[in-house]
Design a protein around this nucleic acid. Sequence first.
DNA 1: GAGTCGCAGATTTTT
DNA 2: TCTGCGACTC
Length: 698
Amino acid sequence: MPKTYRIDEAPLREVDTEKYRKALNGEQLDVLLHGDGPCLVLAGAGSGKTRTVTYRVAYLLERGVATSDILLLTFTNKAAKEMTDRVTDLVGTFPKGLVAGTFHAVGNRFLRIHAGKVGLQPNFTILDQEDGRDLMKLAAKDLFVDGTAKRVPSASVLSDALSFSRNTRRPIQEALDMKYPAWEPFAAQAEDIARVYRDKKRIANAVDFDDLLELWLELLTAHPAVQESLSRQFKYVLVDEYQDTNTLQGLIVDKMVGPTKNLLVVGDDAQSIYAFRGATIENILSFPDRYPKAKTFRLVTNYRSTPEILRVANDVIANNTRQFPKELKAVKKPFAKPVVAPAANADEEAAFIGSMVAALEREGVPLGQMCVLFRATHHSRALEFELMRRGISYDYRGGMKFFERGHIKDMVAFLKLVQNPRDQIAWMRILGMFAGIGPATAGRIADRTTQLESLSLVRAMPVEDLLTPKSRVGWEDVSAILRDLGKETKPSEIIRAVIKGGYSDHLEQEHENWRDRLEDLEQFATFAEKAKDVESFLTDISLKEDYGAKRGKEDEQGDRIVLSTVHQSKGLEWDVVFVMHLTDQGFPHPRAYEEENGIEEERRLFYVAVTRARRQLLLTYPVVAGYDKLTVMQPSPFLGEMDEDAVERMTIERGSTLDGADDASDADADETIERDANGDPVPAKPKKRGFLSDVSDL
DNA sequence: GAGTCGCAGATTTTT
DNA sequence: TCTGCGACTC
Ligand SMILES: Nc1ncnc2c1ncn2[C@@H]1O[C@H](COP(=O)(O)OP(=O)(O)OP(=O)(O)O)[C@@H](O)[C@H]1O
């Protein structure tokens, strides 16, 4: 046995804790000072979990821990950025080298470095959900061309079930049984298709979102040297929103933790709302078993909400049986009871919220301090019209992202080919845009691109035998464009070249609203100008959770109200929060009634929604709703779980109704419109949100 | 095999 | 309101 010499690390500095004592309470400080070794912080909403983690990172840095020794895993990249900014404020310098981001973003980072060890090349491209589904469709077709099977699960069922199985580390059969019981008998086919799907990804040198986690774990398990070096490097691992990690992520964390076992996880089981993608509080429950020396901390003071808001939140969540009971006390002064307001229909609900928002703004509440939350994106339709009418600008979060729009993805496909000429999914997408080339020819050509070293050599690729007379012209066009792109390296130049190279004509032929789309592309190209290179640009847009219009500069108090799904509101807070469409078929989602533990999950979601509010909470629902035919709705069962004297019932009265939905009482929309007017007529329908609200966003 | 047209169907939540 | 699929024609 060779002798080993253990390096005696330099001791950490003592620092003045005054600043921390001022900003944190005793319980939080305890975590900050004694968060060494495995630690679990289990605490309710608004108790300062995120704040504590952030301060702990700053504290570690001040004590002399190197930035590159810290790994901070967050739920969104936006949260990572905000926490990093806060740390910068606290320690005075940007913590360069600190690794902070979502599991997916961090996984991507390590996989770029160690690509070869898990069968990838470093220039791999990332498939989004739609790409994955498209590829799954191809895989299914490959296997069942001749219709040997009467029925095959659809690509979205397959993708979803496969993803669930991978994130929960269950066999596909079990995943199917849990999510799509009707398809459970087709588990064997699903397994076969999944295998073809995986092979296709590898051939294309592409990864899907789940690979970023799965291959990261493989890197750690199949390559002990890598595992050892990474886990040694990150002497401190911190995980926010731990209640929404899944089995796969739990395993990754455990592997990333080195011998010092400085692992700090924080979470609230009552806020676990991502079960549909495999999140499980099992990671919290078994934490003490996996880390026998684990310390458990509790934070019981809520700094965010008024006692009135906290009361209804606590009352409702108390109806869940599967949870840790948690104490949660308000320190804020009483203000107002939450309002419950039924509206006649969706339009009236929207008019009520619009009118309230305008009134509150006149009272001095900035728009940026208000938010409207909903269960599903289509619940906000009427409200979008209403805000448009009133000239109130808003920031929208939920549903389709800017980078997921078809025409943006068309551009992205070209960028992907520049980065990774073997990306067959991108090939298929691009080839399909050219006249005379359909799925069959595209597929044959894509198959032949697997040897292609560089895009600039595309013209030398032998394809004569694959072309039909009709497709020859299309191939001439597309190969010429691609050859030229192969010489470009700037993302913005590539995008502009594609637009000029005929894509704008293509748009004009294909789409009524080509003008809007072209405008989007311009913004996209402008946005791309600040990208360093194609790879970082693609990674950014694949992993960032950006939606429509971005808000302006960070420091100017927001002049936009936020419209968001409850899922997207996790971890955030506003002075005034509306939660809309609270019917029994709207929130909870109707499907939840059949799902096992579905209602408890929805109740947690509701709990997250109401605990976003600092001062005022307004709960609304339409009495009559429905998209094709209108039906009378019952209020959400969660409203009934609130004590009658804990809320204020409000009835909505309409002012002039001649021109449809006008606001009631003294609220005058004119003022709002006037202030906002720049001569533009009020648009007939909400414009598709641009990506950048203006150039200053850059 | 490409492309168009019409219809049914369905609309959670996301990295 | 939109979109994805299948049938149909060229
Ligand atoms: N000790 C404190 N003193 C003053 N304000 C605090 C303190 N701790 C937390 N806060 C404030 O309370 C609010 C909630 O904090 P934070 O977001 O960290 O809580 P959280 O537990 O992560 O919440 P959630 O789980 O609901 O997302 C923030 O505005 C934060 O600044």
